[in-house]
């Protein structure tokens, strides 16, 4: 069983424990795929689905879509575009940040600035 499939199943089952709309069938219908296909993905018998389907699954399960994409071995297309537009700059940035602990990286996230009012 692969990491993406098993994580997906675990999160779905956790939600199903309190909400029956997270059955395999109902979730698959909501994200627009066949229940049998979702079942095979969860069992690792099928490669992870498309980026768009992963995004819909993330939205349904309230999971971070970048994390789910990464588990599927993918990087979000908007991030790929950002890197392609300025490859040298982003390659350098990512390499420099790769080993930093989370709290140090968090400080680099752009904040909305509060002023005087």
């Amino acid at each position: 069983m692969d990491a993406f499939g098993s994580y997906l199943r675990e999160r779905r089952e956790a939600r199903r424990a309190s909400d029956r709309s997270y059955s395999l069938r109902q979730l698959a219908t909501r994200v627009g795929i066949e229940p049998s296909y979702l079942s095979r993905i969860e069992r690792g018998a099928e490669s992870p689905p498309s980026e768009a389907t992963i995004r819909r699954l993330a939205a349904e399960l309230e999971e971070d879509e970048d994390v789910l994409l990464a588990l599927a071995g993918k990087v979000s297309s908007d991030l790929q575009d950002a890197i392609r537009r300025r490859p040298a700059l982003f390659a350098q940035l990512i390499r420099q940040l790769a080993e930093l602990p989370d709290h140090a990286v968090l400080r680099l996230v752009r904040e909305v600035r509060d002023g005087d009012w």
Binding site: S6, V67, A70, I94, R110
Partner: peptide, 17 residues
């Protein structure tokens, strides 16, 4: 999650552009 991420990620994890 963190355990799984190590297994799944061969490329470095991209941060927010």
């Amino acid at each position: 999650l963190s355990e799984m991420m190590f297994g799944a990620l061969s490329a470095p994890c991209a941060m927010d552009a």
